[in-house]
Design a protein around this nucleic acid. Structure first.
Lengths: 105, 105
DNA sequence: CGCATCCATCGTATTATCACGATGAATATA
DNA sequence: TATATTCATCGTGATAATACGATGGATGCG
């Protein structure tokens, strides 16, 4: 359970949550229509309602998306705090990407 | 096969490639020891050699890592071009993360 | 109350991921 | 040529992810 550091686990968890085009599409859609969108996500995606709900659950448990009950429907939006963490962790990885063998030798 | 845009597929592919702590650890190790490292990765990780090779293959086919044969061993390093793409695609996602329901209402 | 709508969850089938030992290809060295 | 080293690939088993229809709970409306 702890062969990897906490940051490594968390970075991987964020990446894994984004590791499906449907979830990328959900995030993009939530970011575009800045207001909270509800079940419209189902109409945008080529997936059944149950599958969309499953993807939303994945994003929610990763801390990237929040959901608020609003009457009979549920209102989703991006979770700013989770995105800050993800940006920090993933950005730190990308910034250190320096090539070596191809050019140096 | 093409229900999602090319960028969405590519973003998800990068994210999925990073969606495992072992691969995060590999990337970090390659970034730290800026020079190319070879089978030392096996010593660093709590995995068998075959498993490490499998993770390296995943990173390689995602375009995040390059491998160069160097005698009897293989020299790995980060692929700068792939990381630029990943940074652009993932960064574009994170930058648009604006909260809504919690604060706005 | 009765009924529709919206969404989560369950059950399930299919497919992919992960990890390992075993084997094989390629190179270096004796 | 023989032997060792390094790594990739194969085969396999276990676990997780994906997608769907079906079901159920909650809310809103007539």
């Amino acid at each position: 359970m702890d062969n990897y550091s906490s940051d490594q686990e968390r970075t991987a968890a964020f990446a894994r949550a984004l590791g499906h085009p449907a979830r990328i599409a959900i995030v993009e859609h939530l970011a575009q229509t800045r207001a909270c969108v509800c079940g419209d996500i189902v109409d945008v995606l080529p997936l059944a309602q149950a599958s969309v709900s499953q993807h939303l659950k994945t994003l929610k448990s990763a801390g990237l998306v929040k959901g608020e009950v609003e009457g009979t429907s549920v209102c989703y939006c991006l979770d700013e705090r989770g995105w800050q963490d993800a940006q920090r962790l993933l950005g730190r990885l990308a910034s250190t990407a320096v090539e070596c063998c191809g050019s140096a030798r």
